[in-house]
Simulated assay, not measured.
Amino acid sequence: MKKYLFIVALFCLGASANAQSITFYDLTNLTNLSEGQARTYLVLGRVFKHQYIEEKNGMQIEHFRTISPSVAEQTVTIGESKTLGNGAVLRSVTYTTRSPKHMLNLIAQTRGSHLILKFQGADADNNIYVFDNDFYHVKMYISTTENKGSVVIEQKEYVPY
């Protein structure tokens, strides 16, 4: 009996060591937060640490990376935005990972979130998935040449019918 309990404990530890640090719902929620709120959300979760700030087209782009060395490298980039004429800000979040398994999990979560798969295809370097609804435009790339993938989530301007 002790042997089985030990095996179950080892399995649970192994599963948590390869756990994905962020879900699709977390990524979409980050687009709805201001840069300060998103930074706090990522850092207070004690999964990501702030890496550096990049100045790009007058915007401050912030880069975050996973803290744990036992987890496949994952990064989140926030700060890219577009200001509309009415003052509303549309934000983008980019997530990258060194684990194709994490990308497949995100694709499954996206399909379960009622976003519509608009395109599925491939180019020379990536398998490409594009999802869309009234609020978000999501592009997912899984590299065919390296063990990596990325997700770009962009807020859309909501125009009621």
Rank of each mutant, 00 (worst) to 15 (best):
V138A: 08
Q20A: 13
L33Q: 10
F64M: 06
S70H: 12
V76E: 04
T97Y: 03
E157K: 09
I142D: 08
V130D: 14
S21Q: 06
V138F: 12
T94G: 11
G45C: 05
G149N: 03
E80G: 07
D26K: 03
V138W: 04
R98P: 04
S70M: 11
D125M: 14
F64W: 09
L30V: 02
N57G: 09
K56C: 13
D132C: 03
H63D: 10
L117A: 04
T110C: 13
F64Y: 11
L30M: 03
K118W: 06
V151E: 08
G85V: 08
I61S: 03
L42I: 05
I7V: 12
N126M: 04
Q120E: 12
D26A: 00
T66E: 14
E54I: 09
Y25W: 10
A108C: 05
S113C: 13
Y161N: 07
V138Q: 06
K49R: 12
T77W: 08
K3W: 10
K56P: 02
V159R: 12
N133F: 03
E35V: 15
K82N: 10
M140G: 05
T96Y: 02
S34Q: 10
F11P: 01
V76K: 06
I7Q: 04
T40G: 00
D125I: 15
E146V: 11
E157V: 01
L5Y: 12
G149C: 01
V71Q: 09
Y141N: 13
V93F: 04
L90A: 00
T28Y: 02
N147H: 03
Y129G: 01
M103Q: 00
A122G: 08
K56Q: 15
V152P: 06
K2I: 07
L115T: 09
T96F: 12
